[in-house]
């Protein structure tokens, strides 16, 4: 699911439905925190709850859960990239650190 499609699952919720969605997500997050180490089973946790929620909330929550499962999992090879460093012409290739040191990565944007 691309970003625009995923965003639409949440951005067009009415205030009441959005409030319900927030409560569900908040509850889910608390349960995950409580079950330390089982973060990768969000989908299982959600399915096991069999929560009685509206169609819109279910769609939005499952969109978030689907996104959570994306990306290379622990033990899988990192997807290589060769990106330019901000403010310089230097480029950094992720695979160049292989055999040398671990690389923590933070993905995000200002907004």
């Amino acid at each position: 699911m691309d970003k625009a499609t995923s965003d639409e699952k949440v951005m067009f919720l009415t205030p009441d439905v959005r409030s319900e969605y927030r409560e569900v997500i908040s509850g889910l997050r608390s349960e995950l925190k409580a079950a330390a180490g089982s973060r990768n089973s969000i989908k299982t946790l959600w399915e096991s709850r069999n929560a009685e929620v509206s169609f819109e909330v279910r769609e939005a929550v499952e969109s978030v859960i689907g996104r959570d499962g994306m990306g290379p999992k622990v033990g899988q090879p990192a997807v290589d990239c060769d990106l330019k460093m901000m403010g310089s012409q230097e480029r950094v290739r992720l695979s160049s650190f292989k055999g040398k040191r671990p690389v923590p990565l933070i993905f995000g944007s200002y907004t």
Binding site: I42, G71, K73, Q76, A78, V79, P104, G108
Partner: peptide, 28 residues
Amino acid sequence: AYGTAPERLYIVSVDGKMTCHGGAGPHF
């Protein structure tokens, strides 16, 4: 490829494999 939206934390171990797959931000 990294399922980034909107923010995500990872660690690539020295063998080039993922050693930490952070939850999808901001909720997880």
